[in-house]
Amino acid sequence: MKTFYWLVKREFWENRGGFLWAPVITGGVFLLLNLMGIVTGEVMGGRHGFNFAFGGADNNMRLLQKLDTQSAEAVGAGLDMMMCSPAMIISIVMGFVVFFYCLGALYDDRRDRSLLFWKSLPISDTATVLSKVAAATVLAPLITVIVGALVGVLMMLMYAIALSFHSVSVWRLLLLAHPLQVIANLVGSIPLYLLWALPTVGWLMLCSAWARNKPFLWAVVLPVAVGIALGWFNLLGTVNVQNSWYWRNVAGRILLSVFPGGWYTQTPHIGGHGPAEVLSSLGLLNAYGALASPTLWIGVATAAAMLAAATWLRRWRDDS
């Protein structure tokens, strides 16, 4: 267990740029853009004599008191979504980071021959591969969620402070939001991310362990070429394979599942009337409905096979 912890830590050291700085910088840029938006609003407002106040400063004070229960709920859900938004944007960046991390995970150290140093230590190849899987599917999303939540909170505070200059009592407004619930939702979806992302992680790591050079080409060109070939055969009418089925259930799953949220394609429904319903359809309870779909579990089983193959290659590939 201690060895495993240090193996994951090693992955973090090596990929600090992608795992830590990419989310932090994305979050920082996000905050900066929001700040610029607020400043623009203030300056333009000031120049044209427009006030944020809805019908005068006096009315602002009473605005919140006038909200009925239903609207209060909608405002709260809206705020929750707003708080989620940085995490969502950062998680797209994380998808790219994880994709390229997996592609290099079992390849880079073969290329620069540092593999020979790692292999001089009493660490099993299984532990090595699993530590890389853990770094991609647990560590990366965890950092994303933490940074995303922090940025979300900071953004809300920023708006709260800006609005309070216009005598809107935003603190009361903010009390309508559920930051803890938002964070719990984000953290709670990490295990689902792990399961959903596994086929992509497995495929990329298999290519990474197998390719003698250019793992990216193998990983991407192979499934795309198969898809195009299938499409062509379909066109000729020689085989009857649903082309869209292949793209969605094979190519898409082994290339794009590192981007979070894909599991919503396997849940009963998303959306609804008003922010509150939309938000709850995106909530954990509904998201984990994806566990009932065979697609997810077939993906996990395939990933296990691909990772076993990658481990075997890691053990016996002899080219450094």
Partner: peptide, 30 residues
């Protein structure tokens, strides 16, 4: 590998690692 060590040649230490990290890592896995 608990009983055997090897130096394959000069250039196999990972280029990104720091002295401190290398010592920490080996100390905790070996």
């Amino acid at each position: 590998m608990e009983q055997v060590c090897f130096i394959a040649d000069v250039a196999v230490l990972p280029r990104w690692i720091r002295v401190r990290e290398a010592v920490d890592f080996v100390a905790n896995v070996h």
